[in-house]
C-alpha cells in the first residue's frame, strides 16, 4: 500500500487533535472518541462500498460525451439546474454523495455542475430534512429554511464557474488528482 501526502496530513491531524483532547479531557474521553470513530466506520462501510460501486458502474453506462453535453462547461444554466436536481434527489450520507461527485467528475462534468450537485445535496437533500430537521426543529422553521436555500445551489455553481478562471481554483484532471 502506498502512503500519499494526504494520508500524512490526516495522520498529523489525528495525532494533534488526539493529544489536545488527551491533555484537556483525559484518557477516557479519548477512548470514547476512538470508539465512536470506530463504530462510525463500521456503520458507513456498507454505504461507502455501495457509493463507490455506483460511481464505478455509472462510468460504464454513460459516455463522457453525454455527461459533457448535459453537465459540461458549456451546459449553461440548464446544466446547473440538472446537477442541482440530481444532488437534491441523491439519498444517503457523504459516503454516498462524494463517490458520486467523483464519478461525475471522471465522467466529464465541469466544476460548476459538481459544485451545484454537492451544494444541492447538502442544503436541500430530502434525507436529512425528513429524518432530522422536521422532527427536531419543526415544520415552520424547516419550510423557511428550505425556501431560503432553494436558489443557492445554482448560485454556487455560477460562482464556481467564475472562480475557475483563477489557476488556484482550477480542478486538475481527475486521474492526476488521486496522488
Amino acid at each position: 500500500m502506498k502512503i500519499a501526502g494526504t494520508d500524512l496530513v490526516f495522520l498529523a491531524l489525528a495525532t494533534v487533535t488526539g493529544t489536545i483532547a488527551y491533555v484537556r479531557l483525559g484518557p477516557d474521553a479519548v477512548l470514547a472518541a476512538m470508539l465512536e470513530a470506530g463504530s462510525l466506520l463500521v456503520l458507513i462501510l456498507p454505504q461507502l462500498a455501495a457509493g463507490l460501486l455506483i460511481g464505478g458502474l455509472v462510468t460504464r453506462l454513460v459516455s463522457k460525451d453525454q455527461v459533457a453535453r448535459w453537465l459540461g462547461g458549456s451546459s449553461g444554466l440548464m446544466g446547473l439546474a440538472i446537477a442541482s436536481l440530481a444532488g437534491l434527489l441523491t439519498p444517503g450520507g457523504p459516503f454516498t454523495s462524494f463517490p458520486m461527485v467523483y464519478a461525475l467528475w471522471i465522467a466529464g462534468a465541469d466544476a460548476g455542475a459538481l459544485i451545484a450537485f454537492i451544494t444541492a445535496w447538502s442544503l436541500l437533500g430530502f434525507n436529512r430534512l425528513i429524518i432530522w430537521e422536521l422532527p427536531l426543529l419543526g415544520l415552520e422553521f424547516s419550510v423557511i429554511r428550505y425556501l431560503a436555500c432553494l436558489p443557492l445551489p445554482i448560485l454556487a455553481g455560477l460562482i464556481a464557474r467564475w472562480l475557475v478562471r483563477w489557476p488556484a481554483f482550477r480542478l486538475r484532471d481527475p486521474d492526476e488528482a488521486q496522488e
Binding site: T6, D7, L13, G18, M34, A37, L41, L48
Partner: peptide, 11 residues
C-alpha cells in the same frame, strides 16, 4: 485515510 480522518474529526 478514512479511518484517520474519522478519528481526527471525532477528536
Amino acid at each position: 485515510r478514512l479511518p484517520l480522518a474519522l478519528l481526527a474529526a471525532s477528536f
